[in-house]
């Protein structure tokens, strides 16, 4: 005989409900804030990292760890872009499994993060860029304090609707390359509506690095996160 459900739960047990993660990532005063940037191949993760380096590099002590499956490709891109001193970029090899290196077995990335911290005392921000992966790839909270998931209009306007932990749980979702929406016949309005529906209260930013090369909105979001850190 079914028992009547009269009490309430402090957390929502409905697995389909979207809501902000009630658990704050553990903060570690005295070390750099660790920001993960993930998303599918070609969505513009490295371009966003370069933009953030340009936007924040003058005010914030920062460094970057790249995880491209072609490991030196992104590091070379960043070095070539001249946005960051070469010693502030570390590349990590992921054994053909970029999601494993940011989620299940984060030791190589932690090694790289600690290497940067040792060689650049006073770092305030370390960006860990994942290799391009699928919609299920998210960063472990053991590796990063916050994460951005980057998708783009050219990847298809159904991507936000498909969901997956990257779209639904990342601290910030960036819909990139919006200047291409018309050419690829992507409905940006549908993408944004779907994104908000999938993410509840979590923020969504649309951007085009062609129109705003320094990613001002994302940079402002990162600044806010840094300001919220305990000193």
């Amino acid at each position: 005989m079914p028992v009547e459900h009269t009490h309430t739960h402090p957390v929502n047990f409905d697995p389909t409900a979207t809501e902000p993660d009630p658990h704050a990532a553990a903060t570690h005063a005295g070390r750099a804030f660790r920001l993960g940037i993930g998303g599918p191949v070609g969505s513009g993760k490295t371009a966003l990292v370069a933009a953030l380096c340009r936007a924040l590099g003058g005010q914030v002590e920062l460094a970057v760890v790249t995880n491209d499956i072609y490991t030196t490709e992104d590091a070379d891109f960043l070095r070539g872009a001249g946005v960051l001193d070469a010693t502030r970029i570390e590349a990590v090899q992921t054994g053909c499994c970029p999601h494993t290196a940011i989620r299940d077995d984060i030791s190589a990335n932690l090694d790289a993060v600690e290497h940067l911290e040792q060689h650049h005392p006073g770092l305030e921000l370390i960006i860990v860029e994942s290799g391009g992966d699928n919609l299920t790839a998210v960063f472990s909270r053991g590796l990063v304090d916050a994460q951005i998931f980057v998708v783009d209009v050219a990847g298809g306007d159904k991507v936000p609707r498909k969901g997956g932990p990257g779209v639904t749980t990342a601290d910030l979702l960036v819909i990139n390359k919006i200047d291409l929406a018309e050419q690829v016949r992507a409905d940006l309005g549908v993408m944004v509506t779907d994104a908000h529906r999938m993410r509840g209260e979590l923020p969504v930013i649309t951007q085009s690095l062609v129109r705003t090369p320094d990613a001002p909105e994302v940079a402002a979001w990162v600044r806010d996160r840094l300001a919220a850190q305990p000193a």
Partner: peptide, 11 residues
Amino acid sequence: SRFPGGGHAHS
């Protein structure tokens, strides 16, 4: 192989 000691990236 699920032990998180970094072995997955070594061949």
